[in-house]
Design a protein around this nucleic acid. Structure first.
Lengths: 341, 341
DNA sequence: CCATGCTGGACAAAAAATGTCCCGTTAGTA
DNA sequence: TACTAACGGGACATTTTTTGTCCAGCATGG
């Protein structure tokens, strides 16, 4: 059964939604016993007309009957409900998880892909593809999109595409270079996204971690200054979320910093900031590029991260409270829910 | 798996069609390697625009990719195809059989339920339920529906239902009484259908097989005369189809008639007429009620019969060429195809 | 006997799907 | 190298479907 549903999810996702809608209506009618169209429309939060269409359909299928005092389910409808319930549960498990996370962490949208990025590279690809789809839909001409680096976000760039080029979309790195392999750099990611979507990009040629002195001098540099202000005024941010310790090591910070991070309980890292498991900032890298206060102004903040091992970190970052859209995977989602506030 | 699809068919009837359409497109692309939109549209016999919509969708699902020289399937698409192929085969086996029978015998609609009514009583029930659904959709106010008797048609009556009563639907027996058990009589079937659909019925209180004399005298009877004309002007006929010999014996015709029927090669029986395997009438019972020439005038003629043993008879009757809708089962359908003209 | 809540008809407005053409590009061929 | 055929994608009028909004008429319960 699982197999066929998986296939259908790919081939006819919209019809599965229709299925759920009809199931929900039927289910609600079953619960209510007898209920009128208007009342039902309000309690299901659909417009009366749409409900009517569905109800007419369900009636024609003999699943419910309509009398002058309202609608009630027929035996055939009851039977159908019993049979379909496990199916719906299975198909929309993730959908439910999505709305749980959405409401508990106060996000505007959560998308969960099945699987575990830690275990399957395919899941990570899927995560990227999904995020790419989301992003593509959001970007319009005139937008500035700033992106971080990392393998997940690179995967997003990989799956980005656009049938119609969006020429006036600008992609910029949120932060400077990180000294890792070139394809994971924010610069690379930004340029790749721009190319794939048919837009523009600008690069930020500075290292991500700066000393005070270098910071100040670079900030004076007109070319740097200009692009930094460009970055900081973006409309959309796409960023990864990492485990604090993993990221600290990857960024090759000193021993001292690492133990400091451990002491203050750093859990998550995102664009150079470290967060503890209450979502408080416990450390920041001295850097040009996007700052935390910019995030709070940014219209759309999209986090993309998956894998069971990252669940805790994602939860920690979400508690910071300025994420809008989260794209993650099933394994991480289950962790995230565990650490719900 | 069958179960899940059955349930889905009720809630989202076109789900499978859409699924098949997309499968076919994807499959064709897979076969072709690289193919352009127009070429594909022609070879699949869909209009270009519709294909384009589907292709865009499949692309957005990451199942195929489009380049300037054509479309090709992605690994994900290939994987999906591999998974879905057996499913499609299984699900649409019967659909294919349906259209084969439909076209070879020139019917307007063929419905095949899985199984063999000879072997499983459940299949017979399903046959009845399916036919009942078809009939319910056809009947509207003002219609006169004439029905024959027999266990299959009785099963149809059993599963008839209607949420909104169709008060001005009339159900009448196509023929007189047959001296079998009461629940299989055409009269009983007609009344039961009427009751279940909330309509009216009239009965024909005459034996099915009449001598010339009795025939003439009953025909003078005003009450009989009236209902007969009612029956003969029906808009819809629902009838069973039987094996000629089986029916002859059941009708307790004389030895002479039986050997005559054997001599002329009678194969099928339907509403008192016997047909050979070319669909020619080889014998008729002298009877009141629906006549063969009425069938040719009737708007909708629905035959319901199943079971491997009846396949040959059904084929014979279909060759007569005045059936519109056939509801049968898998076992019979396979036989029917064997005897295709 | 009235008020309430229900269905179902009606219809304009909005949105989506569809049929058709065309254009610039590209790959393969002569 | 030049040409041709086939490609994707843009565009747009037209048809079909969906949706929002009212309202009439009918039960039902107080």
């Amino acid at each position: 059964m699982k197999r066929i549903l998986e296939v259908q999810k790919q081939l006819v996702p919209d019809l599965l939604d229709v299925m759920k809608k009809r199931y929900t209506i039927l289910h609600h009618i079953m619960i209510s016993g007898v209920i009128g169209r208007r009342t039902l429309a309000v309690s299901l939060n659909i417009t009366e007309r749409v409900l009517r269409g569905e109800v007419d359909f369900l009636k024609s299928q003999g699943l419910l009957e309509i009398e002058s005092n309202g609608m009630r389910i027929t035996p055939a409808g009851q039977l159908l409900l019993d049979q379909i319930e496990p199916m719906i549960k299975e198909v929309f498990e993730l959908t439910d998880l999505e709305s749980q996370i959405r409401t508990t962490y106060g996000l505007s949208q959560v998308i969960i892909v099945p699987g575990d990025s830690d275990r399957s590279f395919f899941t990570k690809k899927e995560l990227g593809r999904t995020a790419a789809t989301i992003l593509r839909k959001l970007v319009t001409n005139g937008d500035v999109v700033s992106v971080t680096g990392g393998s997940t976000i690179a995967e997003v760039a990989n799956h980005m595409s656009s049938s119609a080029p969006i020429k006036e979309a600008w992609f910029v790195p949120a932060r400077g270079g990180l000294g890792e392999s070139v394809e994971l750099q924010a610069n690379t990611v930004a340029s790749q996204m721009a190319q794939r979507i048919g837009g523009q990009y600008r690069l930020l040629h500075v290292p991500d971690d700066l000393g005070e002195e270098a910071y100040q001098s670079l900030l004076q540099e007109p070319s740097v200054k200009e692009i930094v202000s460009f970055v900081r005024n973006c409309r959309i941010v796409v960023h990864g979320i990492g485990d604090a310790m993993v990221m600290a090591k990857r960024r090759k910070v000193g021993e001292a910093t690492i133990s400091m991070l451990q002491n203050v309980g750093a859990e998550a890292e995102a664009f150079g900031y470290y967060f503890d498991n209450n979502g408080h900032v416990v450390h920041k890298m001295m850097t040009l590029g996007l700052q935390l206060e910019d995030i709070q102004e940014t219209e759309v903040v999209i986090g993309v991260a998956g894998g069971q091992s990252k669940g805790k970190a994602i939860a920690a970052f979400l508690k910071f409270g300025h994420e809008d859209i989260l794209v993650t995977d099933e394994a991480a989602a289950l962790e995230i829910i565990k650490y719900a506030p």
